[in-house]
């Protein structure tokens, strides 16, 4: 290397050292600051990740609960619907020994409390056992 260029470099280095020298003391706080910033960043990142994860955990558990409740509601609805069909009601009534009535008869209660019977009341007769339902299913 030439003397010209070398002296230039040395000169610059010397002058730089001269300027930096007073700042040598506060270097530790700066490093600490950087470390703190890094640590804070890490903690924040961890926090954000945790929040995200816990949010999805919560969403997941709520989803599962919702699914279970929907299924339960559907199952109950299904039962109500099948139990309230005319077919099932007729079978349940027959199981209790009930039979369909005969000719329609009405009792008309007048304003004075006196009653009038319309139609021809007669005891119901037990019909022959009903045929099985026409291929209907209760699902």
């Amino acid at each position: 290397m030439t003397a010209f260029s070398a002296s230039g470099v040395v000169g610059r280095a010397r002058s730089a050292r001269g300027r930096l020298a007073p700042a040598t003391a506060p270097r530790t706080p700066f490093v600490l600051l950087i470390l703190v910033v890094l640590a804070a960043g890490l903690v924040l990142l961890l926090f954000v990740n945790t929040v995200t994860a816990s949010g999805s955990f919560r969403a997941r558990s709520l989803q599962l609960r919702n699914d279970a409740l929907v299924l339960k509601q559907q199952e109950l609805q299904r039962r109500i619907q099948s139990l309230s069909t005319p077919e099932h009601l007729a079978a349940a009534a027959a199981a209790l020994g009930m039979v369909a009535g005969g000719d329609p008869t009405f009792i008309v209660i007048g304003p004075g409390g006196h009653t009038k019977v319309l139609g021809h009341p007669a005891p119901a007769t037990v019909p022959p056992p009903p045929p099985p339902p026409p291929g209907g299913t209760n699902r």
Partner: peptide, 8 residues
């Protein structure tokens, strides 16, 4: 699709 009445 549910048809509680079946064939009715």
């Amino acid at each position: 699709r549910m048809h509680p009445d079946g064939s009715i």
